[in-house]
Simulated scan of single mutants.
Amino acid sequence: MFVIFALKDDSNKGSFSASGAWFPLALFFLIFGIGACFGYETGYAINLARDFGPRLMSYAVGYGHEVWSAGNYYFWVGRV
């Protein structure tokens, strides 16, 4: 949120001001960067509403604690 607020702030005139036509591109790189950094470990779980609900329901119907470690490389290496 802080990065988005900083990008949209018109009074923020740093070395790169993205508060105009550059905002969509800067927002794309922000979301892409978050996904590239955390996507492998968390299954690209940026939107909590689309990630937590299905995991909670899967856990409730009996899939066990494995639903909380989806995408965790070290968990799956031991099972292969």
Rank of each mutant, 00 (worst) to 15 (best):
Val80Ser: 11
Ala49Val: 06
Trp22Asn: 12
Trp68Gly: 01
Leu25His: 12
Ala45Val: 04
Asp9Gly: 05
Phe16Met: 12
Leu30Glu: 00
Glu66Trp: 07
Phe16Lys: 14
Phe29Asn: 09
Tyr63Gly: 00
Gly20His: 09
Cys37Gly: 05
Ala60Ile: 05
Asn72His: 11
Ala49Gln: 13
Ile34Glu: 02
Arg55Thr: 00
Ala18Leu: 00
Phe23Met: 02
Phe16Leu: 13
Phe32Ala: 13
Leu25Arg: 11
Val80Arg: 10
Asn47Thr: 01
Val61Ala: 04
Leu27Ser: 03
Trp22Ile: 03
Phe29Ile: 05
Phe16Arg: 14
Tyr59Arg: 06
Ile4Ala: 03
Phe5Thr: 04
Glu66Asn: 13
Glu41Ser: 08
Arg79Val: 11
Phe5Ser: 06
Ala21Phe: 15
Ile34Cys: 05
Ser69Trp: 13
Asp51Trp: 01
Val77Cys: 11
Phe29Glu: 09
Asn47Arg: 09
Gly43Thr: 08
Thr42Glu: 04
Ile34Val: 11
Gly64Asp: 06
Phe28Cys: 01
Gly14Lys: 12
Phe23Gln: 01
Ala21Met: 12
Ile4Glu: 00
Ala18Lys: 01
Asn12Leu: 10
Trp22Thr: 04
Ser15His: 11
Pro24Thr: 06
Val67Ser: 00
Leu25Met: 11
Gly71Cys: 03
Gly33His: 08
Val61Asp: 07
Phe75Cys: 03
Ile4Met: 08
Leu27Tyr: 07
Asp9His: 08
Tyr74Gly: 09
Gly39Met: 06
Ser19Gly: 15
Leu30Tyr: 09
Ala6Met: 13
